[in-house]
Computed example of a mutant assay.
Amino acid sequence: MPIRMCVGCRVSAEQAELVRVAPTASGLVVSRTAPGRGAWLHPGCGAAALKRRAIPRALRAGAVDPAQLAAVVAQVDALAATWANQGSSD
C-alpha cells in the first residue's frame, strides 16, 4: 500500500487512511481520482492544515478561495466520525 504524508499533522500513513484534496477547474474537491497534484489529510486534521496553510502549499496553488478551502476542510473533518466507525467494526 502506498504511503502518504498528512499535510495537517505531518504523519506518514497508508493511503487508505487519508483523504485527498485536489484542485479542479471548478475549485477544490475531495477525490482520489481527480488528476493533478493533491494534498493528503487524515480526517480530523483539517484545522491543523488550515493553521499551517499547508493545503495551498501542497497543491502549489498561488491563491485559494478561503471560503472554499474552509468548506473542503469541513468536509474532510466530517469524515472523521465515519472513518472511526469503520475502524471499530473490523
Score class of each variant (00 low, 15 high):
86 Q>T: 12
65 D>I: 14
50 L>C: 06
37 R>A: 14
71 A>Q: 15
43 P>N: 07
36 G>C: 06
49 A>H: 02
87 G>W: 10
16 A>V: 12
63 A>F: 14
69 L>W: 02
44 G>C: 02
33 T>P: 07
81 A>R: 01
11 V>S: 10
23 P>Y: 03
79 L>C: 04
10 R>Y: 04
25 A>C: 05
41 L>Q: 13
73 V>S: 08
40 W>T: 01
28 L>K: 10
1 M>P: 15
20 R>F: 12
65 D>K: 13
70 A>R: 15
61 A>Y: 09
5 M>W: 09
13 A>T: 08
12 S>H: 10
77 D>I: 05
15 Q>Y: 06
10 R>N: 14
51 K>P: 04
41 L>D: 03
46 G>N: 10
62 G>E: 00
75 Q>F: 09
39 A>P: 07
35 P>S: 15
26 S>I: 00
32 R>W: 04
86 Q>H: 11
54 A>D: 11
17 E>R: 13
9 C>V: 07
23 P>C: 05
70 A>W: 01
26 S>N: 13
16 A>Q: 04
3 I>D: 11
73 V>I: 03
68 Q>V: 08
90 D>A: 09
39 A>T: 08
15 Q>E: 04
17 E>A: 06
43 P>T: 05
39 A>L: 03
44 G>I: 01
70 A>V: 05
6 C>S: 09
68 Q>Y: 14
71 A>E: 12
26 S>D: 06
81 A>E: 02
35 P>K: 14
80 A>L: 01
11 V>D: 10
40 W>M: 09
30 V>D: 05
6 C>P: 09
8 G>P: 01
77 D>H: 04
46 G>D: 06
59 L>D: 01
70 A>Y: 02
49 A>D: 00
7 V>Y: 00
35 P>I: 06
26 S>P: 11
60 R>V: 13
65 D>H: 08
82 T>M: 09
39 A>H: 09
32 R>C: 09
50 L>F: 07
73 V>D: 04
41 L>H: 00
42 H>K: 12
85 N>A: 12
38 G>Y: 05
85 N>P: 06
